[in-house]
Amino acid sequence: MAILDFERPIVELEEKLGGLRRYAEQEGVDLSDKIARLERELERLREEVFSKLTPWQRVQLARHPDRPYALDYINRMTIDFLELHGDRYFGDDPAVVGGLAKLGERSVVVIGQQKGRGTKENIRRRFGMPNPEGYRKAMRLMKLGAKFGLPVISLVDTPGAYPGIEAEERGQAEAIARNLYGMAMLPTPIVVVIIGEGGSGGALGMGVGDRVLMMENAWYSVIAPESCSSILWRSHEKKEEAAEALKLTAQDLLKLGIVDRVVPEPLGGAHRDPEGAARTLKEVLVEELDALVDVPPEELVRRRREKFYRMGVWEE
């Protein structure tokens, strides 16, 4: 398991506690006082570290290599998932997955940006950076949902759209724009969840919904903090400051009215307990869909558009 700098003291204490427990068991000695003390200390340390995460630390958690990805959530939250492939124009993009699944009692269309676990899979899935085919596949599946009255769940997790030569030649910008337009008028409920990274237009291309939820340690912004640092500060060293300035955390975006609801993660982040994270998200999604499925499609679309029209802060 990969360990982030600020996780290290916690992990070390956990290891110490584990060792002590094993020792007590093997030797049959009573160390319960000592163990209880360490447990309290561990609890306190976890609270201390995770109650005041900096925005940059959250970015690191959002990118944690053990963090649950779209398929990890789909497999844990749904049953009978059938993956559907291809955009029907050019190809099938492994950076975007999607298909039909049952969430609770309800059939849904679920789409997601999919990172790879390990180098080989990551190369195949382009680290979750979609090509135009990915956005077009997502749109095709969303339209399928609308046609058969199935709600759409979109799991966003990408550093950004893939900046490749072929991606540009096949209309990366057009594919994203077309999705923004299409999602704004899709006559079925759409619930978006930013599960990890919400990198710019590449994320938003699957991010227009009636409800936009965000996992507690996800980030979502117009640009990644490193790129922002190199453009505005002309230095790669200011990523922490950029992360701060961009207001990219779930709590910040809730305040700005961009995100409707923050989904709590298990203490220590979703990677410490993927089962728990998926269980919480499933409950939340069922509740969100319950509230949306009976709204007439025209009303749903009207409200969805109004919600995005309200976004922004200006002076006049």
Binding site: L180, Y309, G312
Partner: peptide, 18 residues
């Protein structure tokens, strides 16, 4: 999109397209 308004700028893409 304008970096200095963060995700608010990003949302203008959705707002204008919608």
């Amino acid at each position: 999109a304008r970096m200095q308004e963060g995700a608010l700028s990003l949302m203008q893409m959705a707002k204008t397209s919608a």
